[in-house]
């Protein structure tokens, strides 16, 4: 179908030199591409993006992460996911769909957490995966896990585990440009599950940081550069596109969801810039996540589903399939 559209656009350029016909054909091509792309589970995009993030970081930015830690993290994460799914006899246990979220979470843990031992990553992966099946709340129609696994792992690593730490400044600002383009590309093509959350968070966070710099009385120079330094950060990017935008742990009602995002960003800002405590975003999301089931109970809405029915883009929308989604699907 896509090949046919490409062929038609190519031939129309010869047959219709006025351009109007070509415009409609181009639109047809884009729409064909969009339809094919739209049927893909959004988590594939996440996996491709996170894999490139991890590879880029480990190879070019010296992430201080060993291959064994990555392998152990994935092995433990996927095994835990399998054990829970088989134990609970969940329908997706025998398909790749049942493991996509686990892969995404393991990538997140590897990118965020640093450790001086080999047991921390697999242990965190086990805990993170298990948290999806154990820590569940909300109304029956849209009951889901409370904590984003990668957020839980990062918080646990920082707060409770010796030998682990988070390195928020590890990416360096300049080399992130490419990754920002990729993430924004995903946003434009609606490959980010809750794109409204990502956009709302980035706008709120950027505004709060700008306000802080203005209120502190910084001049344009170095104020503007400071602001860019704080925004253009790998941690912020990862947080905006792959953590707070997790559709399973954000309120399902859009209005409530946007208010929730503003609350998370504000909490992080206060934690980091008023109390001078580290890792504001991770801590704020961990704390605020516990309120989401309450919000979901107060503002009832359809549950999100990753699987897209044929012809209907899965991402950012709510499909009829969500009505029939199993209440205990922990993906």
């Amino acid at each position: 179908m896509v090949a046919k559209a490409i062929f038609e656009v190519a031939t129309s350029a010869v047959r219709h030199p006025d351009g109007t016909q070509r415009m409609s054909k181009t639109r047809a091509l884009l729409s064909a591409l969009g339809a094919g792309f739209g049927r893909l589970d959004a988590r594939w995009f996440q996996i491709v993006f996170l894999a490139s993030f991890l590879l880029f970081g480990a190879l070019a930015r010296d992430f201080a992460l060993s291959g064994i830690q990555v392998v152990a993290c994935f092995a433990a994460g996927l095994t835990t996911q399998a054990l829970w799914q088989w134990g609970l006899r969940l329908p997706q246990r025998q398909t790749w769909r049942g493991y996509l979220s686990a892969i995404v979470s393991c990538f997140g843990i590897c990118i965020l957490v640093r450790s001086d031992n080999l047991w921390a990553h697999p242990l965190l992966a086990c805990l993170a995966m298990s948290s999806k099946f154990v820590l569940r709340a909300g109304p029956v129609a849209c009951r889901s896990h409370i904590l984003n696994p990668a957020n839980f792992a990062a918080f646990a690593a920082w707060a409770w585990m010796g030998g682990c730490w988070l390195s928020p400044g590890q990416w360096g600002a300049d080399t992130l440009t490419a990754l920002w383009f990729l993430a924004l590309g995903g946003l434009v093509t609606q490959r980010i599950a809750r794109w409204d959350v990502s956009v709302a968070f980035l706008l709120t966070w950027a505004t709060l940081l700008a306000l802080r710099i203005i209120l502190l009385g910084y001049a344009w120079n170095p104020g503007a550069a400071m602001w860019l330094q704080e925004i253009a950060n790998g941690s912020t990017l990862l947080f905006a596109f792959f953590m707070i935008s997790d559709p399973m742990t954000t309120p399902h009602h859009r209005g409530a969801r946007l208010l929730y995002v503003v609350a998370v960003a504000s909490t992080a800002c206060v934690w980091q810039y008023v109390y001078f405590k580290p890792h504001g975003l991770i801590v704020a999301l961990f704390v605020c996540s516990w309120v989401v089931p309450v919000i979901n109970t107060l503002c009832r809405h359809d549950r999100f589903t990753w699987e897209a029915p044929r012809g209907i883009p899965a991402v950012g929308g709510h499909s009829p399939a969500s009505e029939t989604a199993p209440a205990r699907e922990a993906s």
């Binding site: 640093r114 010796g162 030998g163």
Partner: peptide, 18 residues
Amino acid sequence: TPRTFPEDLMFTQTNDQR
């Protein structure tokens, strides 16, 4: 340089003991 370090240097203590 004043251009490359627009913000004061902030630190965090890790648990890394290697």
